[in-house]
Structure formats: C-alpha cells, structure tokens
C-alpha cells in the first residue's frame, strides 16, 4: 500500500515539500512568475529570444471584442483557444476543423460559434485563471504533430515535458493522450507518461495511472519504439527557456510540429513530480549534481545540453 520513505530517498525521489522549498523557493524569483503564468507574455518573450512557439493569430482581451471574433476566425480552419493565465491545461480548446458553420473539437465533439463565444467570455472573466483574476484569450495555430508519433497518441497532441534546472535539462517525459485522459496530456487524468533518455530521446519506461505499461492502451503500439526526432534541438529549446525567463527550476512543455519542428507550448514554474514515476528514478541526485556546477563554465545552451547528454545517459528499462 505505502512505500517506505527510505526507499524513496534511496531512489532519489523529489517530494513536494522538498521541491517547493529547496528548488522552487530558492531558484525561482517570484517577480518572474508572471512571465510563465501568462502564456501571452511567454509567447512574446519567446519571440524576442528566437524560441519557436506556435503561430499567434490574435488575442481577445475585452468582452466586447468577442462580438467580432467571427470575422477573425473566418480564415482559420483549425486553431487552438487558450486562456493566457490558465493552468494545468484547463480551458484549452483545440479545434481541428470546421463542419459547415460548426466546429469540431479534437475530441470529436461538435460545437457552435455560440459555444466558442461563451467559452471566451468565461475565460475573460477568469474562470480558468489562478485566483479568478480577469484573463485574456489567445487564439493560435493548430499543431500538426509529427508522423513519428503516429499511433502513439489518441485524440490529442503528444507533448514533451522537460524539467530544466539552472538551464540544464535534467529529466524528460513524453506525454501521450489516451481515451481515458479524454485527449488531454495530463498524467493524473490517465495520459501515458513515457520517460525519455536525455542522451538519445529514447523511451526508458512508461506508466499510466502510476503503473508500468508497455504499449499504448488504445492503439496497442509498443512504446519501446519511441525515439523523439531532433532530440538535441528539443533540449536546446528547453535549455534556452532558462536564459529567456531567468527562472531556475521550470518545466518546459514542447511539441514537435510536422512543419515547424520543435516548438514551445508553455512553461511551468511549478512542474509536477510525476515525471519521476515515468522515468523510474528520482530527480534529486541530478538536481544536487547540477547545484555543484559553476554557472560560468556553461554560458550557452549548447554547452549545457552537451553536458547533460553525456552526463545523464541511461540504459532503457523496457
């Protein structure tokens, strides 16, 4: 039923209290939080630092603008609607295509223009934002995910979460949507988490609901075959997020777009702990190792990525 805390310590598992106090509290300056809590700010910052993100179409900042969105959406076939201050993937609607006057969501549900208006109105009023503060709506490009993930994800975009500590990617995980997770890539909702080897982008271990799995529960494709293409590019993108935000301990959510390559979806200043379960080992030894390194020795993202690809190579468990 319960695992002994000594075993967890031996595995180097990072607990919530330790994460909050020793890493988030120590390395993340509160003043910088708005940069990642507001997706719009992240996006604008990313453009400044030449970090690729999905193409922004338009922003709705006031309730009265909702009346005019019909014209703005006219030219778009598929798109994603996101609250700028949403957290945990709440309030994100992905529209894959149109069906006459209606829209089809990634889950297959048919929605009307009126539904979109109401959703935007709710979002602006702060339904999805932390603390219910007023919010903005971002409408951006639909991600066409790369063929290499064909059969690995069900009704949703697989995304890659990389935990970056002081600019060093320390752990990575691929999140695959399943039928159980309703197309969402959240592990606690039933998405499959696949731990990735930092040196190669290959699958190390996979879990769903905290239990090991070997194939995708819906498509039955063996997860062992997973190898993320352009892996070094992914790590570089994640590593640059540190230079961009200045936050020491972040989780970068990346996607691989078929046309545009690796893109940054969002950043998280309080990345979750489930990544450790997906990888089958704890973050703590790596974090403590990075803490001992001198920042001056690794001025660029390239140097940091090269270091971790060499230092943190692991042989797969599956």
């Amino acid at each position: 039923m319960l695992i002994s805390p000594f075993k967890l310590r031996r595995l180097g598992m990072l607990g919530m209290n330790c994460r909050n106090r020793d890493f988030i509290g120590r390395y993340n300056d509160r003043r910088l939080y708005p940069l990642v809590d507001n997706k719009l700010k992240t996006k604008l910052l990313a453009e400044e630092y030449k970090v690729a993100t999905p193409q922004l179409h338009f922003v709705v900042a006031e309730q009265h603008e909702i009346a005019h969105i019909e014209q703005q959406l006219e030219t778009l076939n598929g798109f994603a609607i996101k609250p700028a201050k949403g957290s945990g993937g709440k309030g994100i609607w992905v529209i894959t295509h149109r069906d006459g006057k209606d829209f089809i969501k990634s889950s297959g549900a048919k929605i009307t223009m009126e539904d979109i208006r109401r959703h935007m109105s709710n979002t602006l009023a702060g339904l999805y934002s932390l603390g219910g503060v007023s919010d903005e709506v971002i409408v951006e490009d639909l991600i066409e995910f790369d063929d290499c993930f064909e059969g690995f994800s069900f009704e949703g975009v697989p995304d890659i979460r990389i935990v970056v500590f002081r600019g060093f990617p320390v752990m990575a995980m691929l999140r695959l949507a399943t039928h159980a997770s309703d197309g969402k890539a959240n592990l606690h909702q039933g998405a499959v988490g696949v731990g990735l080897d930092l040196s190669s982008g290959r699958c190390l271990n996979a879990v769903q609901f905290g239990m090991p799995v070997y194939e995708h529960p819906d498509t039955k494709r063996s997860l062992k075959e997973i190898k993320v293409p352009d892996w070094r590019g992914m790590l570089l993108l994640a590593s640059r997020c540190y230079d961009m935000t200045g936050l020491g301990y972040i989780g970068a959510d990346l996607v691989l777009d078929a046309n545009r390559g690796p893109e940054l979806l969002e950043l998280n200043a309080r990345p979750g702990l489930a990544i450790q379960v997906a990888n089958g080992f704890g973050l703590l030894p790596r974090l403590r190792h990075i803490e001992t390194l001198k920042e001056k020795r690794f001025p660029t993202a390239e140097s940091r990525v090269d270091y971790v690809m060499k230092e943190f190579a692991v042989t797969p468990l599956l």
């Binding site: 039923m1 319960l2 695992i3 002994s4 805390p5 075993k7 967890l8 310590r9 595995l11 598992m13 607990g15 919530m16 209290n17 330790c18 106090r21 020793d22 879990v207 905290g210 239990m211 090991p212 702990l273 450790q276 379960v277 089958g280 080992f281 468990l317």
Partner: peptide
C-alpha cells in the same frame, strides 16, 4: 515550514516505484 521530507500521501502516490531499483 522547514520540512522537506516526503508527505504521507506521496508514499502512496509513488508506491509503484517499489519495484524500481
């Protein structure tokens, strides 16, 4: 406020780590 050890709930949450070593 200084406690950085595991929470009781984490002992359950990470119980699948039992067979990792």
């Amino acid at each position: 406020g200084q406690y950085t050890g595991y929470k009781l709930s984490e002992l359950r949450r990470f119980r699948s780590m039992e067979n990792m070593d």
